[in-house]
Design a binder for these strands. Structure first.
Lengths: 210, 210, 210, 210
DNA sequence: TATGAATGAGTCTTCATTCAT
DNA sequence: AATGAATGAAGACTCATTCAT
């Protein structure tokens, strides 16, 4: 229940923190493959080559472990969004950069992303709310860029909320097939996706099909 | 474990079949909300207002129930794809109709769709393989339409596989917010989505942004 | 945590309720012998000749089981105190009757009483508070009788609070050796205990020794 | 399991012995509050401000720690009884002195006493037997004094075994509310308790009420 | 002396499922 | 058709204890 069991993570030794992060990453793969609830502590122990007691020495609880995975995703995605904001540029450029950043996270951490997108309801109470809020903040950033493009005339007159959902679906859903080991880089996907989307919402496009 | 337990469904009375379908639909909502593994038989009993013995009289097993939900989704989606194929028309029209059909399934059965997309790995062995094949068949249908459009010159020269993933992500992911009870109809979403996507992959678009 | 898990007990069949009471009594013996925390669910299962699942069908949780044992004691003790109050009589008679009633509970349910007296801190939160209050109410009843005796002149001028503790210690502590199976009846103990205590606090006693 | 682990305590340095005694006393408070089984090694470590390894350096095992607490109580109680025996005097004086000595132990070490009275069954095998024997010896000392008083005619003709239980209950049970920090001294309690008890078993008392 | 990582048997509890009624 | 008692394997988690450092 409690978001932070045992000592605060910051009080731990670097060795402990390193081992913990390795456990978080290894566990993300298991959760991604079989699902959070279907993955038992015993499997996590085996995958991390640790006994039950030792595993709990690092994770606090199974739910804490899940939260750590999801937190990592949000942290990276939000950091990318911030970099884009600082970079500035026209809405179309912003959107392209946001896609590039997002796909790089998916490409680097596809298991974490899948767990993030699938297992939000597995978090209890306070933690679920907090994650939902951060997720909303990201989604609203996309909407804001779309609104700006409409205002500036770069994009045609579209529904920002609905269009943001189209963009998010297109990009988020890549966790199913975009992986570090695979033949595609984040760039390989980000560029054609941006081409489709920007052409799809550009002013002349709207005039022609609407 | 066994894919088909008890008598074949077709041998049952209409009353039994009706009750079973009601149970499947009710259970889909629970699975959608809390996840397949996190939902217990006891919850299913309460939601369906049935004792454990009676519930098992209808469902066979928990996994059979899950398979029934997923089967319903595939059935409807494949039926829509078939209707589109019979209707004929240019690749752009085909793609628009496929989107419309798909979103109508999502709109009508958002819980079933979410369960379908989330819980495929919960199926064991043979059943998982079979569902995966049917899913692949649908995805290849999208790719085929894209290839046809490229061939006919209606679409610019794109990667059909990658573009199909963009289209699928955009449409499948709507289960998160598109629901029967909501303010949006399937049409409300299908039209703007098609506008974006077709403008995004049309010939002139490619020339302009590529 | 929740004081009442599963369905309310009153909704159960008479057969269920009977079996549950048997389990409560059998378990009281185990808790009395080895202590609440030292007694495992497995031991309870064996003693009650039930599997784990079946045991939980009746008990809700281990702590619920403990609470049921303690509740039974408080129920019986308070009922005895009420009978005495209705019977009326001089403070000395009241005290004698209270001793008789209390020792009859100890004699009939020595295991339950031992569990009650030893394992109050094992109850969590709300339940602990509630039991403490009921216990206090009983202790205050003893003090009230003592005060009445002092006021009426039947007892010498004593400290009611301290004297009540003497009386309670003398009587409560009998759970250690007073048992249904043993050679002594409740009466065998209640009479000499009353003789000691009443002679000890009577007016002439106070004049002689005080 | 083994009654004496590690080196004999007498071979340790005075510093070690001092620290160990502090640990024994601190732990007694924890055991008193939550119970022996409910108190974990981790809690003991925190309360004693020591790591696990360091704690074990002093305690040997959790059960050794419990035994040390109980041993301390028996040691002090038996020493008091011996002092009384050496002091001599009439049975009534002996009983009063025994009460005074016993209550002084309770007053000084209420936590230890509670642990002693509650957790005897937590000791395994040989140790339990040994403690039981020493406890019995103390109880028989009380009975002996009562028998002497009956023989000498100072007390009326009472059942020594039963009367000893009354006396023991009255005095032992004070651990529940008699504490070093509280407003009452051992004397504050011992005097009125003796008044009650001696008046209650004195010759004239027996004649009057029996 | 002291640390804290590691062990693995043990804790209570829940699970999907069966079956006598 | 339906009930709910029973099963027992599996669930997440904690325990006292050890040991390399």
């Amino acid at each position: 229940m409690s978001p932070a069991r045992g000592r605060d993570e910051s009080q731990r030794s670097p060795k402990w923190r390193g081992r913990r992060e390795a456990i978080v990453d290894t566990s993300a793969r298991l959760f991604a493959r079989r699902g959070y609830h279907a993955t038992g502590i015993a499997e996590l122990c085996e995958a991390n080559d640790l006994g039950k007691g030792a595993l709990y020495h690092y994770i606090g609880s199974k739910e804490d472990l899940l939260a750590a995975i999801q937190d990592k995703v949000l942290e990276e995605v939000m950091a990318g969004a911030e970099r884009v904001e600082h970079a500035g540029g026209a809405p179309s450029e912003q959107l392209a950069m946001l896609g590039q950043e997002l796909l790089e996270v998916v490409h680097r951490l596809p298991d974490h992303v899948r767990v993030f997108l699938h297992e939000l309801p597995a978090l209890s109470g306070a933690r679920a709310t907090q994650f939902d809020e951060r997720r909303r903040a990201y989604e609203e950033r996309i909407e804001a860029v779309l609104r700006a493009g409409v205002r500036s005339g770069e994009f045609r007159d579209l529904d920002p909320w609905l269009t943001a959902r189209a963009w998010l679906g297109m990009h988020n859903y890549t966790y199913l097939w975009l992986q570090s080991g695979g033949r595609l880089t984040a760039q390989d996907v980000a560029t054609p996706f941006s081409e489709i989307f920007l052409a799809g919402i550009g002013r002349s496009a709207g005039e022609r099909t609407g």
